[in-house]
């Protein structure tokens, strides 16, 4: 049990690192990532589940960080846009988004990158229809989506043939 008036000590695994901090039980993962852990790559939009910009990965599944409590994420693997790439460089998705202009204002981009990564991890060569379906929970007000779909396709192609 937690007492609502007292902070609790939490240890969360974020982008491969264990981060310990104290917070009130009512803090969402979104608030904790941005305000307590300084990971402002994850954006906040509606904060009500209606836009998808706050999407992060939990155990490689896209989850809305605005609708999950930080304390509900203990013991699970959290990945944000900052930890998308396993190495020091960019993830192929990030490269493709940059090259093809799939990010305009960029506000939806961190959420879309996370959703797209989960898709490519379970489906190496998704069809256009599968990409559309997987991204149906991430709103973008700038691009019209076509460039986003093309960037996911380009990244998928490159990830299949990493040496080229």
């Amino acid at each position: 049990m937690t007492n609502g008036k007292q902070k609790i000590l939490l240890a969360l695994r974020v982008n491969g690192e264990v981060r310990e901090f104290a917070c009130y039980p009512n803090r969402t993962l979104l608030e904790v990532l941005r305000e307590d852990l300084g990971l402002t790559g994850t954006k906040h939009g509606c904060e009500l589940g209606e836009c998808g910009t706050c999407t992060i990965l939990i155990d490689n599944q896209p989850i809305l960080s605005c609708l999950i409590l930080a304390l509900e994420c203990e013991g699970r693997e959290i990945v944000t846009v900052e930890g998308l790439s396993p190495g020091p460089g960019l993830h192929p998705l990030q490269e493709a988004f940059g090259e093809l202009g799939a990010a305009q204002c960029g506000y939806c981009t961190p959420g879309i990158l996370c959703t797209a990564k989960a898709l490519l991890d379970r489906n190496r060569r998704p069809s256009r229809a599968e990409i559309r379906a997987a991204l149906a929970g991430n709103l973008c007000r700038c691009t019209g989506y076509i460039k986003i779909f093309e960037a996911v396709e380009l990244a998928a192609e490159r990830m299949e043939r990493p040496s080229e």
């Binding site: 937690t2 609502g4 039980p25 904060e47 409590l69």
Partner: peptide, 8 residues
Amino acid sequence: MRLPKFVY
């Protein structure tokens, strides 16, 4: 938009 406080 923040959640009100509660015991969990």
